[in-house]
Computed example of a mutant assay.
Amino acid sequence: MDSWERARRVLDTAGLPPDGLVDCRALSGGTYNTVEELRLTDGTRYVLKIPPSADADGMTHERNLLRSEAEFYRAAATVGVPAPEVVTAGEHHLLMTRCPGTPWGDLDPGEQVVLRGELGHLVARLHSVTGPGFGYPSGALGPLAPDWRTAFTTMYDAVLDDARRYDAWLPRPADEVARTAKAAYDALDQVTVPRLVHFDLWRGNILVERSDGTAPRIGGLIDGERMFWGDPLADFVSLALLADIKQDVDFLTGYQEAGDRAEFDFSARQRLALYRSYLYLIMLVETVPRATGAEQLARVREAVAPELLAALDEFR
């Protein structure tokens, strides 16, 4: 079926008038799911996500991402963090409200200070939410685990298995990466409570709302499909993508003002290096199933490979 017919069926499932659909347009920025904006006659806007077909290439942890995304939004709502509201969710769709604002772009220095502090408050509230176990709630890598070490090493092994399966380019062989990372696995035992982790909080997934005559504010945290229950320290990777979160004083101040700790002792630094290497492995491996073009592929390797090596070197 075409996009309009699919959208009407989803609206009908949600108890919304399918004949009220006046616009259905694709949204840019999605790298895995199909994302569309639906507008109804009363002006209400929704976002519809559709997963790729079951036989589409993808990474192992990407199965059933929409199930994780719906769980993230429902969990965020319990602590008042602005995020889309789930309208209806099924095996083959996720319909949600549209948050106000546009992806975080250039800001003047004063706005940057305020918004990074506000973001710190919001992320600390996310991390106050606890889950029923550790790992991806999608079930892509199996059921939730009783401990973080089991969950995360399963996640890490899965991305390395994907690297081998796709024969993805890495700056070091997958087996060497696996041996190097194991040196830091003992640090994972310090994490005993599964907490809500977005794990994709780069600026493109943070909406900034501007109203005439008012200061900008964060309108919503979106694209929660990569969420898992685990160590909140893992969120600091995408929050400082290809950089060092310890340099983001404004964010860390807001995070601590909201009552959460951001300590970087030896164990924390080892875990943070593990999470950095995990995300950077994903960024390199996913270029294969995404069929990334040569020019973009070169940019990804140039930017990500040194950061992956730096993270791995911290285990030596």
Score class of each variant (00 low, 15 high):
Asp2Leu: 06
Arg9Val: 08
Leu11Glu: 00
Gly15Ile: 07
Pro17Asn: 09
Pro18Leu: 06
Asp19Met: 07
Asp19Lys: 08
Asp19Gln: 14
Leu21Met: 07
Val22Cys: 10
Arg25Val: 13
Ala26Ser: 14
Leu27Gly: 11
Thr31Ile: 13
Thr31Asp: 04
Val35Thr: 15
Asp42Gly: 10
Thr44Glu: 12
Tyr46Lys: 00
Pro51Val: 02
Pro51Gly: 01
Ser53Leu: 12
Ala56Val: 09
Ala56Phe: 07
Asn64Trp: 11
Tyr73Asn: 04
Ala76Ser: 12
Thr78Lys: 13
Gly80Thr: 12
Val81Phe: 02
Ala83Trp: 01
Val87Asp: 00
Thr88Asn: 02
His93Ala: 08
Leu94Trp: 03
Leu95Ile: 06
Cys99His: 06
Pro109Glu: 12
Gln112Leu: 12
His121Gly: 08
Leu122Thr: 02
Gly131Phe: 05
Gly131Asp: 01
Pro132Ala: 15
Phe134Met: 09
Gly135Cys: 09
Pro143Glu: 11
Leu144Met: 08
Ala145Cys: 13
Asp147Cys: 07
Asp147Leu: 05
Trp148Asp: 02
Thr150Asp: 06
Thr154Gln: 10
Tyr156Asp: 14
Tyr156Glu: 12
Ala158Met: 05
Val159Thr: 10
Ala163Arg: 02
Arg164Ser: 11
Arg165His: 14
Arg165Asp: 13
Tyr166Ala: 04
Asp167Ile: 03
Trp169Ala: 13
Pro171Thr: 06
Pro171Cys: 07
Arg172Cys: 00
Pro173Ala: 12
Asp175Ser: 15
Glu176Asn: 05
Ala181Pro: 03
Val191Ser: 04
Val191Gly: 02
Val191Trp: 04
Phe199Asp: 03
Phe199Thr: 09
Leu201Val: 09
Trp202Ser: 05
Arg210Ser: 07
Arg210Cys: 05
Ser211Tyr: 03
Asp212Ile: 08
Gly213Arg: 09
Arg217Ser: 15
Gly224Val: 02
Met227Val: 06
Phe228Ser: 03
Trp229Gly: 02
Gly230Phe: 06
Pro232Phe: 04
Pro232Ala: 08
Ala234Pro: 09
Ala234Phe: 08
Phe236Gln: 05
Phe236Val: 01
Ser238Arg: 11
Leu239Gly: 03
Lys246Trp: 08
Lys246Leu: 05
Asp248Pro: 05
Val249Trp: 07
Leu252Asn: 01
Gly254Thr: 04
Ala258Arg: 07
Arg261Tyr: 05
Ala262Ser: 15
Glu263Cys: 12
Ser267Leu: 10
Ala268Pro: 05
Ala268Phe: 04
Leu274Tyr: 02
Tyr275His: 11
Tyr275Ser: 07
Leu279Ile: 14
Tyr280Trp: 15
Ile282Gly: 00
Met283Val: 09
Glu295Pro: 02
Gln296Val: 09
Gln296Ser: 14
Ala298Arg: 15
Arg299His: 11
Arg299Leu: 13
Arg299Lys: 14
Val300Ala: 04
Arg301Val: 10
Ala303Leu: 14
Val304Arg: 02
Val304Met: 06
Val304His: 04
Glu307Thr: 10
Glu307Cys: 11
Glu314Leu: 10
Arg316Ser: 14
